[in-house]
């Protein structure tokens, strides 16, 4: 089977001459259709830059980014597949939702990129109501503004907005990092269920090892712009082979420390 996403020798530079910084260096990996692929790294490791390349916000400086066998970037111009096919959920629902729009407008906005017929079909009242209930909100919430909601509820709105176009691939860029743990658990469970129901493929970007462990089948570890290790989450957590991955795992404060040691043996 051909992979859904293919990155080959991808570089990203910022600045010129002496000031040039390589944010991403020679990154190669593939994401299969139907899997959740985790991208882990600390701040500045380049993981969000890769997410931006896939959604069309940043062109790569070198290398190939392919979606369903087609190149997403030709030079500086982004060739999106079908509109709404790739969607994204950002970390901070405080800043990613327009404070002057009602929830209904926010959720329906991505449909404006779609052809008229499809827009009418997907923006139907019934479908919208089913979706808002599915992400755990109520119909009456549709007429409210973002500030009336808690962080967890706002992230549910952002998820509904991503799903309204019926995407095949969703980038989740630190979707629960701004949330309390009990709320994080709700949102992670919801994301897992939605993936099952809708046959989604996820790229899950996070700095949180245990969240990646919970969500992902395969993963890549990034450090200073490079992918230092890829493999199944099982493998990487049991037997991390790169020293950086080992340091990451050893730094993790965990109340499950004892259990983890047992799991390693």
């Amino acid at each position: 089977m051909k992979p859904l996403i293919e990155l080959k020798g991808v570089h990203k530079y910022y600045g010129k001459g002496k000031q040039r910084i390589a944010a991403v260096r020679d990154v190669t990996f593939q994401i299969e259709a139907g899997e959740t692929f985790g991208l882990i790294g600390e701040s500045g490791s380049g993981k969000s830059t890769l997410g931006k390349m896939l959604i069309g916000l940043e062109p790569p400086s070198e290398g190939e980014v392919r979606y369903a066998e087609k190149a997403l970037w030709k030079g500086q111009s982004f060739h999106r597949p079908r509109p709404g096919e790739i969607q994204i959920v950002f970390q901070d629902p405080q800043s990613s939702l327009d404070p002057r729009m009602r929830v209904k407008e926010i959720i329906l906005e991505p449909l404006r990129a779609l052809p008229r017929l499809e827009r009418l079909e997907k923006g139907g009242e019934e479908r919208l109501h089913a979706l808002i209930r599915r992400v755990g909100l109520k119909e009456e919430h549709l007429s409210r503004y973002p500030h009336e909601f808690s962080g967890g509820q706002r992230q549910r709105i952002a998820i509904a907005r991503a799903l309204i176009t019926d995407p095949a691939f969703v980038i989740l860029d630190e979707p629960t990092s701004a949330l309390d743990v009990s709320v994080q658990a709700q949102v992670l469970n919801l994301l897992k269920e939605l993936k099952q129901e809708r046959n989604l493929t996820y790229l899950f970007i996070s700095h949180n090892m245990s969240v990646i462990r919970y969500m992902c089948e395969r993963m890549a570890v990034m450090c200073k712009g490079e992918v230092v290790e890829t493999g199944t989450a099982d493998e990487i957590f049991r037997t991390p082979s790169h020293p950086y991955t080992q340091t990451l795992l050893a730094s993790l404060p965990s109340i499950f420390r004892d259990k983890r040691v047992e799991a390693n043996v």
């Binding site: 743990v181 245990s210 462990r213 993790l252 499950f256 259990k259």
Partner: peptide, 9 residues
């Protein structure tokens, strides 16, 4: 219980 468990994902 809300914390993801590394040993038992």
């Amino acid at each position: 219980g809300a914390l993801p468990d590394l040993a038992d994902p």
